[in-house]
Design a binder for these strands. Structure first.
Lengths: 208, 208
DNA sequence: CTAACCATGTAAAACGTTACATGATTGC
DNA sequence: GCAATCATGTAACGTTTTACATGGTTAG
């Protein structure tokens, strides 16, 4: 059985990486229990780029085991459920490599903040400013968290960390670079609304 | 009936904006049919920040209509199904404003490329380079597409456009700024692997 | 002649998150 | 005492994507 990893459909079209592939990657990166894998996607190196929760991880791990893409040794523990320590197999590493070599789906950003800001005209000015403050602060905080990563990772992981840090900083700077224009435009629009209707009477009277 | 828009759960925790809110936003922005709304999320101003497909849009539109958050006038057409032209109502605008004022879930980036690059050590160098080329090119192309947006949009939409353009350019620059380090590290690792085993024989012989 | 565009809508399938169930240990 | 951490796993739930159904017009 040729252990399929459907990150590409039957036609070869780009499909998102599936949870099995993501787990295989986490395993290769040295996260070797379901619990640790979740942390890798919640707080660890993959945090910015992918997400995965228990509900996907444990079934995926069992599937990988059944397909021979991962192996598992159980460690009996006191009080807690037995710890299952997984390792990627050679077949698993081959499958991971194959999945990463297919056409990858391009990045997708989901930003409720940016969507909200599109409707700045419906919000009060102080709400818009607060939104921008929170948003920029969020990215700065993220950048700092991501920068404080484990020392001396392999080359690929180093790239992830550096990109995450600098990319988040860049986005924050971008917000700050454009907010002045937004806030000024909003003020202008408000002034235009609040202004008493322009003295058309004169024009009308003069034109008659 | 107080037309709920569940972008916040019962406890007030941050939840992603739901499809009804997104449709309300599209309606407010002047996209007034299901078909046009899809284009707004596929190619239009929201393209970078949210996604929404027919399967979500048409049911959402019908729900909004039933709740009085949108109104609809049908335009009979030749051959095609009747065109339903929607408009946001005052209640709808209030609901949109309310949804955007709740706690918003922070941005989530999904990047299969970045995940793949984390495993550069499993790929051939030319594959890694091709990946980086495609990735940077993708962001540059996106930036250019986003920059070529409709003229003179309202202030909030102007912000979206400018952020999209500059943000994508910044990310592309970031890729290019860090790729040299990655590729060099990969070369170093390969050289270390390819190097003939160090002359331990001498040491062993000398020590005997 | 083929592809893309216009236009709405439904149904099924795939996928993911959340909450639940369980429960000892460690730090504040 | 309370919260967090460790640790696995399932079931319900909701969302999203994809395919299907229909079909005339227009541009290359």
């Amino acid at each position: 059985m040729p252990s399929r990893l459907p990150s590409s459909g039957p036609d070869g079209a780009a499909m998102p990486l599936d949870s099995k592939t993501l787990c295989l990657g986490a395993l290769d990166a040295g996260f070797n229990t379901g619990y640790d894998i979740r942390k890798a996607f919640e707080e660890g190196p993959f945090r910015l780029y992918q997400s995965l929760s228990y509900g996907s991880i444990y079934p995926a791990l069992n599937a990988l085991l059944a397909e021979g893409l991962a192996s598992c040794t159980e460690q009996v523990q006191d009080g807690r459920p037995d710890k299952k320590v997984y390792a990627i197999t050679d077949a698993g590493r081959a499958a991971l490599r194959a999945a990463l070599t297919r056409y990858l789906k391009f990045d997708r950003l989901r930003s409720d903040f940016m969507f909200a800001i599109a409707f700045a005209h419906l919000l009060r000015h102080d709400q818009v400013s607060a939104l921008l403050d929170d948003y920029a602060a969020g990215y700065r905080a993220l950048a700092d968290e991501l920068g404080a990563e484990s020392c001396d990772p392999p080359a690929g992981r180093r790239f992830l960390i550096d990109m995450g840090r600098d990319g988040c900083h860049a986005w924050a700077r971008c917000i700050e670079a454009h907010r002045a224009a937004l806030e000024e435009a909003l003020r202008r629009d408000q002034d235009a609304d609040a202004e008493p209707p322009p003295p058309r009477l004169a024009a009308i009277g003069g034109g008659g």
